[in-house]
Design a protein around this nucleic acid. Structure first.
Lengths: 338, 338
DNA sequence: GGCTGGCACTCGGACGGACAGAGTGCCAGG
DNA sequence: CCTGGCACTCTGTCCGTCCGAGTGCCAGCC
């Protein structure tokens, strides 16, 4: 077990390194933090911390930088979550309050988060499987062509074209619309398959094929692949990363473009509470030198999706965590209102 | 006026520079293109081209690189549009055919364009003002709360929450929905304000306030600010830009994040036909070292929006223009089908 | 036992001169 | 008008030197 002072040394190293972006030496440490001991003592502590794998030296004669393990300890034991100041809270609320629809809420959230943390922001749209159905609309576009529009309680709208096997009359369409809505409106999406199972039976033989087609299209929207959407922003902040640029930024941008990768990343994060994944803890290789701070958000107690930021492992964890938490909270409120 | 050979020299310089990313000298030119003259002659031509401002030397003893003016001449007079090969065409069509809805079409188009050109792709959603209304849906969420959903012939779906000044009954809502649709369905969006002007008069006094509120929310979606949306992709390709990285990439990423900037950029481009804006021709400063190739696309003869790519001025113009044109054509087809 | 000051050592980054190579401009001759 | 030749310029690179930061270790002190 590490002594109290050694933990303080580690904390000081992390703080200084995050601030200066340069390896920190024993002398500088004693000057900027009053640890009450001399550089030589700190050197001994640093040697111990290095033995334990919490810090490392890039070169023999350089200062130390924290390892992933060091950041982990810092986040778990040494740092709290820095709360937002009241003016910041007000700014967040004002900014989000102006949104006109869900797309706008998500877009604003991304911008806000990117600006507050000065990092790359990722916001997932409310998941369909965790929402309830508000309304299903069916529009006839051509005799055998129907447009299906799905609206959730979180304001998400999905649309699908349906090519019907047979012409489908306006009356049948209205009938289907009414029956469908009376069954699924207000219900959870995951219950929909069960609730509509026997619906075709209520229709004439000639319409059953079309009804089945419409229903299977409806169920398809719940398939994982289509279900999740997300928006990212603040990629310009990547340019602040470091000096060893292209090598670092390239794989990160590539990862960000792969929605699948990002969704998996967010999916792996714990379902409730804030999750911090540091460096190599991220399964995706391109993100080995970044950390991901994410948290679920939702209108009620339950999370309907996640949001978070991606930044260098060398980030201001308390501040970032504070911003992420605060934004998630306000987004939840906004969703509850709409 | 420049002699034929000098134009050929310019073309050769552009081609070589685009290929190698390095200033090209007189000797290399004569070796790689059989111009039929010696390096010394080419040097004279180069001096003339430099006097005219078509090429420049980064340093006294370096080769020449094209200026914006040089690229402009190249694009206007010396280069054609390189058509896509049949397999490429098939790949484009296959890729786009799998789309399930408009969001998916746009998302796929962005990916496709980014991949084909290896540059940053920008795709605008079909503009509302150039579309026609397919359907307007009104949903009652609470006694004094209505959700407005707008669906266009291009498959775009917009939603807005409406807080009504007074409770609005289900019957009134159905009435409004029916009247509204019978007036605007199939009509151009720009005609909507005129078509619904006198609609409140058809309602009881107590409902008029709500009807007006709903209508003005409907009209608000046409306001420029909300009207346009776009999607970008392929930002990872920016890392291929050059070696003088952070300075170049930063402002570009920033510009790409500012939808307003991008929309203005696309807006300035000619309304029909392909537009190429080279370097300083772009009003936005951050894009001074990039070129924008854009073209309108649409289901019929008329363009409903634009798409294009953003890349370094040193890009393969014929190839890029070919890809942009081909993609726009296929996207138009897809939209026409849905 | 733990802390401290001192000391020798290592290593990376900055500075600066020398050098090679690429490319140019110009000129005289065909 | 084109060509070969020549002197010149400038950049990028290589290499040796030097300086400073930081370390590890040790003997001494509290």
């Amino acid at each position: 077990m590490l002594s109290e002072r050694r933990l303080q040394v580690l904390r000081a190293i992390v703080q200084d390194y995050v601030g200066t972006e340069e390896p920190v030496g024993s002398k500088a440490l004693t000057e900027r933090h009053n640890l009450g001991v001399s550089p030589a003592t700190v050197r001994n502590d640093m040697a111990a911390l290095e033995d334990e794998g919490y810090i490392a030296q890039p070169h023999t004669s350089a200062g130390r930088i924290p390892t992933d393990k060091g950041y982990r300890l810092f986040v778990d034991k040494l740092a709290g979550v820095k709360p937002m100041s009241p003016p910041e809270r007000r700014a967040i609320q004002n900014f989000l309050d102006g949104a006109v629809d869900l797309d706008d809420v998500v877009a604003r959230t991304v911008r806000l988060l990117a600006q507050l943390t000065r990092q790359v922001a990722v916001v997932q749209y409310p998941s369909l499987t965790r929402s309830t159905v508000r309304h299903v609309e069916l529009l006839s576009l051509a005799p055998a062509r129907v447009m299906l529009v799905l609206i959730t309680d979180t304001g998400r709208v999905e649309q699908r074209m349906v090519d019907c096997p047979a012409p489908f009359g306006e009356a049948s369409l209205a009938d289907l619309r009414a029956r469908l809505n009376s069954r699924v409106a207000g219900r959870r999406f995951t219950d929909v398959p069960r609730l509509v199972e026997d619906l075709p039976e209520a229709f004439d033989m000639e319409d059953r094929g079309t009804v089945s087609t419409v229903l299977s299209t409806l169920l398809e929207t719940l398939v994982e692949e289509n279900e999740e959407r997300l928006m990212i922003g603040g990629t310009a902040n990547l340019t602040r990363f470091g000096h060893d640029f292209p090598l670092t930024i390239r794989p990160v941008l590539e990862a960000l473009e792969e929605q699948v990768v990002l969704l998996k990343l967010l999916g792996e994060a714990g379902d409730s509470g804030m999750t911090v994944r540091i460096g190599h803890e991220n399964a995706y290789e391109g993100l080995n030198s970044t950390s991901v701070v994410s948290v679920g958000y939702g209108s009620g107690g339950e999370a309907v999706a996640k949001l978070g930021v991606v930044g260098p492992t060398r980030m201001d964890y308390p501040g970032t965590m504070g911003a992420v938490r605060a934004v998630a909270r306000y987004v939840g409120q906004i969703l509850a209102e709409s």
